[in-house]
């Protein structure tokens, strides 16, 4: 077995109570967003760069290149799959998953260790992102909302997942990176089957 994610890198300030309040407020903002205010519309270059990042992110998942996928996330990132559709407070309400960087690395490590029975055989996916909307988040941040459709096949059974993603992106020296990927399944509060692949 390869040991690709041995490092444990946790910057200060993640997953404390103020973090939960920021996340909750961010999502509430998305759920009540009307027309994007003119002063938050990104310039064409930033918009194009962020779109490229999203398309790369989807392509790496579908290609099962999860280590390269992880590299798109910041050290203080979160990968979040809520279990509700009402923007509940994640400090008081359970999610399907709410992973910090360390837990996300563990997730990938588990999947790539060859003994995760939920992914034997592995679920094949095709991610389609559409309805992409962007609004600036301070000087070097971008909020991205998009709809997603995931066509999946496990053990010959075809199934779909759908919903909307909320991304928070950050401009770094290495380019745009993902601070938050929030996978909002449109039926998150209803029964799910095997979602142990990368959504």
């Amino acid at each position: 077995m390869r040991v690709p994610h041995g490092r444990v890198t946790m910057p200060d300030g993640t997953f404390d109570m103020p973090f939960y309040r920021r996340m909750h407020a961010l999502v509430q903002g998305w759920q009540t967003l009307d027309e994007i205010p003119a002063d938050r519309l990104p310039n064409a270059d930033d918009r194009a760069a962020c779109e490229r990042l999203l398309h790369l992110e989807a392509r790496l998942i579908d290609g099962l290149r999860l280590e390269a996928w992880l590299a798109l996330f910041t050290e203080d990132c979160a990968y979040w799959i809520p279990a509700d559709v009402a923007a509940a407070d994640p400090a008081r309400f359970v999610s399907w998953e709410f992973n910090d960087r360390r837990r996300l690395e563990e997730r990938v490590e588990r999947l790539e260790g060859g003994r995760a029975f939920s992914q034997i055989p592995i679920t094949r996916t095709t991610h389609i992102y559409s309805n992409i909307e962007m609004l600036t988040h301070g000087q070097d941040g971008m909020e991205v909302l998009c709809n997603f459709l995931i066509q999946a096949n496990l053990l010959g059974r075809v199934s779909q997942r759908a919903g909307w993603n909320g991304f928070l992106l950050r401009r770094t020296e290495a380019g745009w990176r993902i601070v938050l990927k929030r996978v909002g399944l449109f039926d998150a509060d209803l029964s799910q089957h095997n979602n142990s692949f990368t959504l």
Binding site: F15, M17, Y20, P90, A91, R92, F93, V94, S95, W96, E97, F98, E106, R107, R110, A116, F117, S118, I120, N194, N195, S196
Partner: peptide, 23 residues
């Protein structure tokens, strides 16, 4: 803080263990 950790704890086994049980 305790309840927030309880939430993350209650996602731990379902996402890392229950999925394999289900298989």
């Amino acid at each position: 803080e305790v309840n927030a950790l309880r939430m993350r704890m209650q996602e731990d086994f379902p996402s890392f263990g229950e999925v394999d049980d289900t298989a």
